[in-house]
């Protein structure tokens, strides 16, 4: 019933590789190269696991060489294999660090940050094998082992990063949905502000002490709280919860009347609590997605320093 003659999949608007300009070529607007995207894959499975395979081969080759090449038991680092593994390791560390630059430098060209991330992950993991073999398991309390240890910290923090990147995005997006579509962080804050205004107006008829409790909820900045509060999404000092609790308690001791202003404030506070909970879940997930970087990146710089010390010292003082 349906067909699209003359419009084979390779010739659709977004994919035509052999696009030509019209008869009036605009010299200032160069032809753009477009990559064909019909399906997509994550950085972990990029190009059918190309970097996984390369990193695996690197590890295997290093291991085999370490096992089968006859070498002295002491000062392994000074042998040709030691130098080779060391050079590969140091080169990898420097290159892996450059992801930070690549990510921020929006230069033209057919590179993709996804490919870089993929390589970063797998080559980074391969360092566990390459650099550890380079030590020859000769570990001690010195600057050389410090560099190795820092590297391991960076790698382990990176593994946390992979785990978070793999598991959290789905939760992050689910938390943002509601029946009207995705709610942005900005909208969440706006909704809170608007609720605050409504609470403020509704709390006018309350008694002085009730109003003071409610006031506390309005004063509290939703972004207050320690890193620990953020990451756990637990806020024991939440003024909104306390206000709602106090008001409900107070109401239990009072005669029931129609149109009690307390009811209205209570309803609004309950809505605010729900909204705060969503914002806090959002902040928790976002913090987790970034938290590991606060270890990963600074330790990388410490590693670069220790690595330089290691290289300088082995050449001058070994």
């Amino acid at each position: 019933m349906a067909s699209v003659p003359g419009l084979e999949p390779t010739e659709t608007a977004a994919t035509a590789e052999d696009t030509t300009t019209t008869d009036t070529p605009r010299s200032s607007r160069r032809r753009t190269r477009r990559n064909k995207v019909t399906s997509h894959d994550s950085f972990l499975s990029y190009a059918n696991g190309r970097w996984w395979k390369i990193a695996g081969l690197l590890c295997l080759a290093s291991l085999l060489a370490y096992i089968f090449v006859p070498l002295p038991a002491q000062h392994f680092g000074g042998t040709w294999l030691g130098y080779t593994l060391g050079t590969i390791g140091a080169g990898l560390i420097v290159w892996l660090t450059l992801l930070g630059v690549r990510k921020r430098a929006m230069t033209p060209g057919t590179w993709s940050l996804k490919a870089w991330t993929s390589a970063h992950v797998y080559l980074g993991l391969s360092l566990i094998v390459v650099a550890t073999l380079h030590t020859g398991f000769d570990l001690g309390w010195n600057v050389h082992t410090l560099a190795w240890a820092l590297m391991m910290i960076v790698i382990v923090s990176g593994m946390f990063g992979i785990w978070f990147y793999w598991t959290l995005p789905q939760a992050l997006s689910e938390n943002r949905y509601d029946e009207d579509g995705a709610v942005t962080e900005k909208q969440m804050i706006e909704q809170l502000r608007s609720l605050d205004r409504q609470i403020h107006d509704a709390a006018q008829p309350l008694s002085a002490e009730d109003a003071a409790v409610v006031e506390k909820s309005l004063e509290q900045d939703p972004f207050d709280g320690s890193i620990w509060n953020r990451v756990t999404a637990r806020y024991p000092n939440c003024a909104t919860r306390r206000a709602a609790g106090t008001l409900r308690e107070a109401r239990a001791f009072r005669p029931r009347v129609a149109d009690d202003p307390l009811d209205r404030v209570d309803a609004l506070l309950t809505r605010k609590e729900a909204m705060l909970a969503r914002l806090r879940r959002h902040l928790r997930l976002k913090s987790l997605l970034q938290l590991w970087l606060y270890v990963h990146v600074p330790v990388t710089f410490a590693l670069l320093a220790a690595l330089s010390a290691h290289i300088v010292s082995v050449f001058f003082y070994w």
Partner: peptide, 21 residues
């Protein structure tokens, strides 16, 4: 006019961003 095509897709570190027809 930018070699490599849409920056949004190239700059996505995890492969989440795609452009499709």
């Amino acid at each position: 006019g930018i070699d490599g095509g849409p920056a949004c897709v190239r700059a996505c570190p995890t492969g989440a961003a795609i452009r499709v027809a």
